[in-house]
Design a binder for these strands. Structure first.
Lengths: 137, 137
DNA sequence: CTCTATGCAAAATATTTGCAAGGGA
DNA sequence: TCCCTTGCAAATATTTTGCATAGAG
């Protein structure tokens, strides 16, 4: 499955907007990393992103990928998906949804949170910033 | 909060039962690691478990802790809780429940899955082995 | 007795850091 | 110009592996 052109554009716009908001320079490397993530449904990890962005920026450093992913998470423009027994994967889809982890293949799928599965917005007296429902298949 | 004596005993019994089932030797080290986990509500990670078990077994190797945790997960007697930005934590509570991650302190809490939050038992046509709902506070 | 587990050390990975030079706003 | 960012190399941290020995059943 592919991300639609409109959705991709929306994600890129949001990324740029937030970057401006925090007065962070928009470098070609950042844009490339974000674009790959935003255009993918496969929830790549660091190594995979590094390999892909290398096609456009052969000299890019792995450290740059690490630094930027961390920054993106801080900025809230991407989400880190922890996968048991593996290194984390990343997702540029921002609306609340769940993930299904196929334990056989290691693949991670997006799932819509069904209306039948309402998430509380307060837990332990604190407000829920984010919720992840992960299904292991 | 503490784990009740009965609950701890039940978890230990189950651990021993499963070990026997798979004809795996029950060593003092394994027992120690499992007991710490089963008696704790703090969802310790590898390093913390290592530090604690070292008090009883000063010569225990970190590798032993890693190997056993992995084995316990395979056996299904503990669960790995992935935490974004951190190394995984472990949990000996086996009934279906959720976790709340306090992003400020890094603490992980157990939550009962409320009846109002029914989890589907099939997703993408495959049966759900396990589901984790993680709330980020 | 047989088979797994243990501890140790080394190896393989993964992630972070410091710093000089470059580049966006 | 002012910071942030980049790439590189080194430093850390994390996790895995091989192997000889010990120990559980």
């Amino acid at each position: 499955m592919m991300v639609s052109k409109q959705e991709l554009e929306a994600r890129l716009e949001n990324f740029k907007k937030v970057s401006r908001q925090y007065k962070l320079p928009l470098t070609p490397q950042k844009l490339a990393i974000f674009r790959i993530l935003a255009g993918s449904c496969s929830h790549p990890g660091v190594q995979e992103l590094y390999k892909q962005v290398k096609e456009d920026f052969p000299n890019i450093s792995l450290a740059t990928v690490y630094k930027n992913l961390k920054k993106f998470v801080d900025l809230g423009v991407i989400t880190e998906i922890p996968v048991p027994g593996e290194s984390p994967r990343y997702d540029a889809k921002l609306d609340t949804h769940s993930h299904a982890v196929d334990t056989a293949s290691g693949r991670v799928y997006d799932l819509e949170v069904s209306a039948a599965l309402p998430l509380p917005n307060k837990v332990l007296g604190k407000s829920v910033k984010q919720a992840q429902v992960i299904y292991y298949l």
